[in-house]
Amino acid sequence: MEFSGKPASFQEVILRLQAYWARNGCAILQPYDMEVGAGTFHPATTLRSLGPAPWAAAYVQPSRRPTDGRYGENPNRLQHYYQYQVLIKPSPPDLQSLYLGSLAAIGIDMDLHDIRFVEDDWESPTLGAWGLGWEVWCDGMEVSQFTYFQQVGGHDCAPVSGELTYGLERLAMYVLGVDHVMDMPFNAPDAPIPLSYGQVFRQAEEEYSRYNFDIADTDNLLKHFEDAETECQSILAQPGDDPKTGKTIVMAQPAYDQCIKASHLFNLLDARGVISVTERQAYIARVRALAKLCADAFVTTSAAGLAE
């Protein structure tokens, strides 16, 4: 697909990023089929940043932050939004230029805008992960997060992955010159049936805001959290040798699904306001313990590049 000039819609921004990163050698994956708080949780980032096996992937990930729900009224806060995520291992020496190329690809004219790399260290306490990098500013607005992963799930990253995260709505609003997210054209404005972001998502934002803040059953959520925790631990407690196939099958990824689940349930509980400041730390530590177990398991598998 060839694009020229400025993009005309939200989806064109996404399509251009997909085309750009495909052209630059990434496997274009699809969103992970679970509720996550950020694109980083996709196993294509968390797990694949572990171990020596080379990796290059890009994908859109719908992300949920229950506490950010504003009933669809805030111009740029949403409880459900899209992140665009790129992970390349080992981080290529020209990752900054590659990244700047992606901005040009979505119609940001490097000769007119002021792009800056401003220190911002990344840390995910729930994933036991941290890295160094920047937030990238375009005319004073943060348009991406750029991170060199140093540790994930308590493991040193070697080689180091380079991770790029674009907040798609904010970036697209900027490129399209839209002030309220709900006013942003989702598909082409001259399509037979033009749809705005609001037409697609406003009602969902309203429904989820109410649900997340007031309705979600906290007893159930707590129970689900504990179930996910137990399931994750028991999956990983299984011996690696599978009696049925006679193979060694470590189930790092099914276990990691449960870790993702626990993390999202924690976010929901947080939005319901039932977690006190002291408890908060304890919950985060529990999710981190799961993430660490999953990472421990994953690095022993061939997907990480070790067991070949």
């Binding site: 080992p90 981080s91 020496p93 160094l132 060199y148 140093q150 070697a158």
Partner: peptide, 8 residues
């Protein structure tokens, strides 16, 4: 104060 590794 804080340093990092990159690539390989």
């Amino acid at each position: 104060p804080k340093s990092m590794r990159w690539g390989q």
